[in-house]
Amino acid sequence: MTTTASPARSRIDETVAHRLLESSRTLSFDPTTEVDWDAPLDPTQHGLSPEWSSLYGTPLWDRMTPEQRVTLTRHEACSVMSTGIWFEMILQQMVLRELYASDPTRSEFMFGLTEIADECRHSIMFARAMQTMGVPAYGPSRLAVELARGYKTLATGESAYGGILVAEEVLDIYQRDLMRDERVLPVIRTTSRIHVVEESRHMTFAREEMKAALEGASAARRLRSGTLIAIVASVIVGNLVHPKVYAAAGLDVREAVAAAKDNPHHAAMLRTSSAHLMEFLDECGLVGGPARRIYSRLHLL
């Protein structure tokens, strides 16, 4: 896999980094005390807003019983959390590598370590939520796991932070809906709220790092980086919902996978969730050529 960052690493504005660091000091959460882990699980409440289910709006969804819908959304939510944990571990390694041998007195350095600490808490929070709901950790495919070994080891600059931004932004709108939806389990609403608040700083940091890395970048480099980021997006989106979630709800897996793949409602929800992301990547010159075709196929454009 080809890296795309320039040898001399550009630095982000210290004013921005300091502001993010101050925000983390005043607006951070401890999931061990913020989440009511002992609250009973109402059998009628979903794991995610029904409209965000991969099958919502399909004839198959219409045939499902209310119990099947609850089961499916709970398993879909945990599938997303499993993939989230996987990518958060990738993110931590990339950020730590970007900070290696950096000036520790800079706010950029301190916020980078703060982000890693946040992600550690988030991963534990999601793991505990899955444990509380009694749903297995589905995780990404073996192919995705192996491909990511190269990405997390070699990607730098805009290629690293672009992948980070994709993972964070695609889930942001989704979780904003979940945290406000009374039909969703309280444990999911609270964990979503914590994640949304703290990830907003991470997204700002990733955008600033990308802009700094791309200063003076050639059109050819932007094309290469944009293509790599789009490939990463394809892997992330393709692993959000594990096929086994359909079996857990008593559905025929092959039928359900086909229905989800051709579901125009879910495609529209994905486009809505990625609108700001696509706008930013386009402004950075990272949505040209192959990248645009990949995003269109993923329903992100």
Rank of each mutant, 00 (worst) to 15 (best):
A5K: 02
S10M: 14
T15R: 15
L21S: 06
S23N: 15
P31E: 03
V35N: 05
W37S: 06
L41Q: 12
P43F: 14
L48W: 09
S49E: 12
E51F: 07
G57Y: 09
T58L: 00
Q68S: 02
L72G: 04
C78N: 05
I85H: 00
E88L: 12
M89Y: 10
L91K: 00
E98F: 12
E98I: 08
D103S: 03
S107R: 04
E108A: 06
E108W: 02
C120D: 12
C120M: 13
C120F: 08
H122G: 06
A129V: 13
M130T: 08
T132F: 07
G134C: 10
A144S: 15
V145M: 15
E146M: 15
L147R: 14
T156I: 13
E158I: 14
S159L: 14
L171F: 11
Y174D: 09
D177Q: 08
I188Y: 08
T204Q: 11
K211H: 06
A213Y: 01
V232F: 14
V232L: 12
V237T: 12
V245H: 03
A248I: 08
E255F: 04
A256K: 01
A256Q: 10
D262I: 01
H265G: 02
H266E: 13
A268R: 13
M269F: 05
S273V: 04
S274N: 07
A275R: 14
E283S: 11
L286N: 03
R293C: 04
Y295N: 06
